[in-house]
Amino acid sequence: MKTINQKAWLFVIPVLLLVAFNALIPIMTVVNYSVQETFGNNLFFWQGLDWFEQLLNSERFYSALGRQFLFTGTILAIEIPLGVIIALAMPRKGFWVPVCLVLMALPMLIPWNVVGAMWNIFTLPDIGLLGYFINNVLGIEYNMTQSPVAAWVTIIAMDVWHWTSLVVLLSYAGLVSIPDAFYQAAKIDGASNFAIFRYIQLPKMKRVLTIAILLRFMDSFNIYTEPFVLTGGGPGNSTTLLSIDLVKIALGQFDLGPAAAMSLIYFAITLLVSWLFYTLMTKDDEPKRGDRI
């Protein structure tokens, strides 16, 4: 009975196919475009690294990239602490647990474009509930089609509303997994509430927070639909994030080559930052069994 079962390879094929279709082929297509120029009619001309060079010297790219980082940085700075605070405030036991969880999950169930449209209408100064309230009741001038500040405040508020729940749910999962003994021990040790947060809750939430930050970073860095529906990148270019700019170039101007080059750089940045995050956050994780003293 000395047979090596070769059938096992068959089971790997679906995954290989999936990865090929899902990642490999699109990326190769983009790589292909990024080094060529086309004027339609399926005519292509070899361009080398020109597009990359051009892009990396263009002010437009850097300002879009800057806006992208500003957006992602801002929403992370708001959503992560806010999510943790809400999770800490949520009940751990009893009747209200499922209610809170469902309420928290609701925003995440709404499709991106609907969220954009919702907030668009919500903030209209004449008929939108929020827009009307701010303009006419609070008496603050607020119109995101005219004021870049208002536009920024709106897209950030929208993203915070839409995605803080994710951070909340992940942090909450981390919190409920802490055994009671830890809280009891801390009480007995005379620890303050802040000390409990700093030395018990935060360390135990670290793993899920790493995931939350990564997910929120990748998602917000690649965000397109919501701000596009909400502001269309305006007023002017004030909310033209990298992704919106990319689509403008690719579809608006049909500059496939530069757009492809931009995609690749975009992709590289996302990958690099995610990797940096992950390595920094997990560098002093719990050691394996064998390394214990």
């Binding site: 055994p179 003994a181 830890f182 009891q184 007995i188 719990e286």
Partner: peptide, 14 residues
């Protein structure tokens, strides 16, 4: 008072 629990309680980051 002081109490030692069934599962060791330790402040991981300290």
């Amino acid at each position: 008072i002081a109490q030692v629990f069934q599962f060791p309680v330790i402040y991981d980051t300290m």
